[in-house]
Write a protein that binds this DNA or RNA. Structure first.
Lengths: 207, 207, 207, 207
DNA sequence: CATGAATGAGAGTTCATTCAT
DNA sequence: GATGAATGAACTCTCATTCAT
C-alpha cells in the first residue's frame, strides 16, 4: 500500500509537471501554437509519455481549466462569509483581480483564450461560471437592499463590475499597455481598484 | 479606361472578399488556427489565388489591422471636437464600445488576440495606441480641471475607464456571458455604460 | 511585306531577349531552380507572354541548346580547313576552350548540366556530338599518319584530349577553383593549353 | 545493452538507406529536382520519417558530402607515403579517377553539381579542397626537383592534370559519351590514364 | 513507465501552365 | 501581342497521435 501510494503520488507529480509546462507555454503563445513536442521538450520527456497522463492535447487544456476554476473558487470561498455586502463585494472583486494577476496563465485560459477543446467540458464550466456570476449578483442585490448602488439593474451592475476587473486584468495579461512599465501597470491597477472602492462606498451617500 | 476601372474595382472587391472571410474565421478560431486553405475554401477559391492578393498569411492580418485602426480612428475623429471635456470623455468611451460591438472581428484582432505577425507593423500600432491613450488621458486631465474626477491620478483613471469598456466588449466578443441571450447582453452593456456616465457626472458634485 | 518583316524581326528579337535572360539564370542557379516567373521578371514581361514564344519551359532549354551547338559549330567550321593535322588539332582544342569560356552558359547547358528536357531533342544532339567527336578522332588519325601521337588508340586519345579541355572549362565554369582569382584561372588555363600544345608537338620526336 | 546496440545499428542502417536513396536520385536528376517525397517513396517510407533522421533536405546533402570527402581522403591517404614523387603523382591521379568512377554519385555532388546547401559547410570543404590541391602542387614541385615536368608553372601543371582526370570522370558520369558502350568508356579512360602516365615519365627525358 | 519509430493529415508556399480578355 | 487571374500539383516541413517494445 505504501508502494501504491508512492506510485499514485508520482503519477500526480508528473501530471502537475506537464500541466505547469503547458500552462506557461499556452500563455506565451496561445494554445494552438504550442505543440505537444514543445511541452514534452520543456519537461525533458518524450511526447509519447504525455499520452500516459492525458488523453490528448485537449485533455491537458481541460485539466488546466479545472485547476484554474478550483483555484479561483478556493480564493473566493472565504469571502462568502463576509457579512457586510459592500465589504463582501469589494473583497470579491479584489480577490478576482489578485487571482488574475497571480495566475495569468489560468486567467488567460479561463476568460480570454479560445476554448477549442471538446464541448463536453464546457458545460461544467458554464455551471461554475453561472454560479459565480449569481453569487456576484446576489451580493449586489444585498448591497442595494443596504442602500448602495440603488438605481440600476443588478444584472447590469454585475456585468459592469465584472467587466471593470476583467478589463484591468486582460489588458495587463495580453500586454496592451506598452506605455507603462510592468511595475507601473500593477500600481495603476491597484489605484483603479481603490477608485472603484471609493465609488462603491459613495454610491450610498447620494441617495 | 472603363476596363481599367472595372479591373481595379474587381481587384479591390476580391481583396475585400478575402479579408472578410479571414476576419470571420480569425474571430471564430483565432489567427493561428485558421489556415489559408480554409480561408480559400470559404470563398471558394484555390489557396494559390490568395497569394495573388496578399504576400502571405501575415499580410492578411496586417491589412485587417490597418482597416481596423482606420475605422476606429474614423469613428473617434468627430469626438475630438467636442468642447466640453466630460461630454467628450463620455462620447469617446461610448464610441469605443460601439466600435467594438459593431466590429467584433476587428476588435478581437486589435485588443484581444495575440499578434504573431511580423514585428514591423506592430510599431505603427504602438504609435497609434499610444496616441489614442494620450488623447484619453488629456481629456481626463481637462475633466479634472473642470472639477470632475478630481481625486485620482489621470493615468489610473484612464486605465480604469479603458478597462471598463474593454471588459464589456471583450466579455461579449469572447462569449463569456452564456447566462444572457445576445439581446440581453447588448442591453446590459448599454445600461452599464449609462451607469458609468452617471458616475462620471456625479464625480463632480462630491467635491 | 515590310510590316510582316518587321513583325517577324520583332518576334525574333523577343525570343532572343527571353533566351538571353534564361541563359544567364540557368548558369547561375541551374535549370530546375529557375522559375519562369523569374525569367519573365528579369525581362519585365509577364510569365504568360513567354508562352507566346515558347511552348513551355523545356522548349526554352531546347532553343538554347540549338543556339549553343550552332555557335560551337560555327566557331569550329573554319578550323576544318587547316591542312596540317597537328595544327588543326591544336586549333580545334583551343577553339573549344575559347568557346566554353566565352559562352559559359551555353557550355554549361551542353556539357555539364542535366538535360531534363523532353527526349526528342536529345537525338539531334547525339548526332551533332557524334559528328564532332568523329571529326576529332579523324584528325587524330591523320596526326598519327603524320607521325604524331603514335602509340595509342585514337579513341582513347580523342577521349583524353577532349577530357583535358572539358576539365579545364568545367572546373572554371562551375567555380571549383576558389584558390585562384578569376584572372589567374584564365591565365592558368592558357598555360595549361600551351603545355598541351608542346606535348602534342613533342609527341613526334620521341618515336 | 544488446538492445541498445541493435537500436543504434538500426538507426544507422536507416540513415544509410536514406542517404543511399538520395545519392542515386541526386545523380540522376540533380539535387534541386529531387523532392523529399521522392526519396521517401523510393525507400517506401513516409516523408515525415525522413525528418527523424535528418534535419532537412540540406542536411542530407551535407551528410553525403561528408561521406564523399571522407571516402576520397581515405583512398588518397596511403598514396601520401609513396616516396618517389612521379610515382606518387601517378598514384594520386589514378586513385582520383578510380574514386570518381566507383562513387559517381559522390563525385557528382563534390565536383560537378551546384551546392545550394547552407554556406556553413562549404567552408569546411573549401579547406579540404585547398589542402588537396596543395598536396597535388607540392608533389608536382617535387617532381620538378627530380627533373620532371620542368618547364611549366606548377600551378598550371596542377590545374592541367586535375582537369584531365576531372574531364575523364565528368564526361563519363554525366553521360556525354553516347558513342561508346559503358565497357568501352571505362577501358578508354584507363588507356587515357596510361597515356598520361607515359607522358609524365617521358617529361623527364626531354630536358 | 517510458520511449523511439513511424505516419497521415495538413500547414504555408511556389510552380508551370491555361485561358479569357 | 500581352497580360491578369486563376489553379492543381507539388514543394518542404510540422503536427498530434499510435504502437511495439
Amino acid at each position: 500500500m505504501g508502494i501504491a501510494d508512492r506510485k499514485e503520488r508520482e503519477k500526480l507529480e508528473m501530471r502537475a509537471k506537464i500541466l505547469d509546462a503547458a500552462k506557461h507555454l499556452f500563455l506565451e503563445e496561445g494554445y494552438s501554437s504550442v505543440s505537444l513536442r514543445r511541452i514534452a521538450d520543456s519537461i525533458e520527456y518524450s511526447p509519447s509519455t504525455i499520452y500516459l497522463y492525458f488523453k490528448d492535447k485537449d485533455d491537458i487544456l481541460f485539466a488546466l481549466h479545472n485547476l484554474a476554476f478550483q483555484e479561483l473558487y478556493h480564493r473566493q470561498r472565504q469571502n462568502l462569509q463576509i457579512a457586510d455586502p459592500i465589504d463582501r463585494l469589494q473583497a470579491y472583486l479584489s480577490t478576482y483581480l489578485e487571482f488574475a494577476l497571480d495566475n495569468r496563465e489560468y486567467y488567460d485560459l479561463m476568460f480570454i483564450q479560445y476554448a477549442p477543446a471538446s464541448k463536453i467540458k464546457e458545460k461544467a464550466e458554464w455551471r461554475y461560471g453561472r454560479r459565480a456570476y449569481e453569487a456576484l449578483r446576489d451580493t449586489i442585490r444585498q448591497c442595494q437592499e443596504a442602500g448602495y448602488l440603488k438605481s440600476v439593474d443588478p444584472d447590469a451592475t454585475a456585468f459592469g463590475l465584472w467587466s471593470f476587473v476583467h478589463g484591468l486584468a486582460s489588458l495587463i495579461i495580453r500586454h496592451r499597455l506598452p506605455m507603462f512599465s510592468a511595475n507601473q501597470r500593477e500600481k495603476l491597477a491597484k489605484q483603479a481598484m481603490e477608485m472603484l472602492n471609493e465609488m462603491l462606498e459613495l454610491s450610498r451617500v447620494q441617495h
